[in-house]
Amino acid sequence: MTGFLTTHVLDTARGCPAQGLKIDLYRIDGDTRTHITSLTTNDDGRTDSQILPAADFTIGTYELVFHAGAYLDAIGTPAEDPRFLDIIPIRFGMSEQSHYHVPLLLSPFGYSTYRGS
């Protein structure tokens, strides 16, 4: 099996997928952080393509950066100054050639993630 990476973002405060949320993917090598791609979630809260497709998959450490503040602004969530959640980085390791799914459950004042399937 060849590895690849996907995500899914759910807005738990509104009970729906988080559409239009920007996500950046970085590869981490020691102190070096290299930008790989930027994607935006669709109407199902997923990206239209794999974040890291099989052709580009390499075992290692990565970071997904979810632009939650911009999403919350766009949907009209009243903003604090500064917003409690703005940029949400999730750093994780991929140690085998497998499907990695890193979802985000989001509300204006909290989030959670896990290794999904």
Rank of each mutant, 00 (worst) to 15 (best):
P82F: 07
E96C: 09
I90T: 13
I51Q: 01
L5C: 11
A54T: 06
G116L: 05
P78M: 09
T32M: 08
L85T: 03
T37R: 12
P17K: 07
S95I: 15
T12M: 09
S112H: 14
K22E: 11
G93K: 13
F109P: 08
H35E: 04
L52N: 01
D86C: 03
A18T: 03
A74R: 15
Y62T: 02
P53D: 00
R27V: 11
D81Q: 12
G93D: 09
I88T: 07
D81T: 15
G76Q: 01
S112Q: 04
I59N: 13
D24C: 11
L106Q: 00
Y26A: 03
R27I: 07
H99Y: 10
T47A: 09
L105F: 14
T61A: 06
F84K: 12
T77L: 06
S112V: 05
T37G: 09
L10P: 13
F57N: 03
V9R: 07
L25H: 12
L39F: 01
L85N: 05
I90L: 10
T12N: 08
T47R: 08
T37A: 13
L72Y: 00
H35N: 05
Y71K: 02
P108K: 14
L64K: 06
S95H: 12
D81H: 15
E63Q: 14
P103R: 13
T47I: 05
G69Q: 06
L39C: 10
E96G: 08
R14Y: 15
R115A: 08
R14L: 08
P53F: 01
D86P: 09
P78E: 03
L105M: 07
T12I: 05
D43H: 06
R27F: 02
G45N: 00
D48R: 02
T41K: 00
T113L: 06
I23H: 04
G3W: 01
I28V: 08
I59F: 13
N42P: 05
R46Y: 02
D44G: 11
S95F: 04
F92W: 05
L64W: 03
T40F: 00
Q50L: 06
T34V: 07
T61D: 09
Y71Q: 04
L10V: 15
D43E: 15
S98K: 10
A74N: 06
T40I: 10
T77Y: 01
P53V: 07
T32P: 12
P82A: 02
E96I: 10
T34K: 11
L104N: 03
D81M: 04
I75H: 09
A70Y: 03
F92M: 05
R14C: 02
P108R: 02
C16S: 08
M94V: 11
R14P: 11
D43W: 01
L39R: 10
G45W: 00
H101F: 04
A68I: 00
R14A: 06
E63L: 01
Y100Q: 04
L39V: 07
G20W: 00
I75M: 03
R27M: 02
I51H: 01
F92K: 12
Q50C: 02
I59E: 13
A13W: 12
S95G: 06
Q19E: 15
P82L: 05
A55P: 02
F66I: 03
S107Q: 00
R27W: 07
A54F: 04
P89W: 01
T113A: 12
Q50T: 11
T6G: 12
F92L: 00
S38P: 01
G20V: 00
G3N: 08
S117C: 14
T61W: 07
D81S: 12
Q19D: 15
Q97K: 02
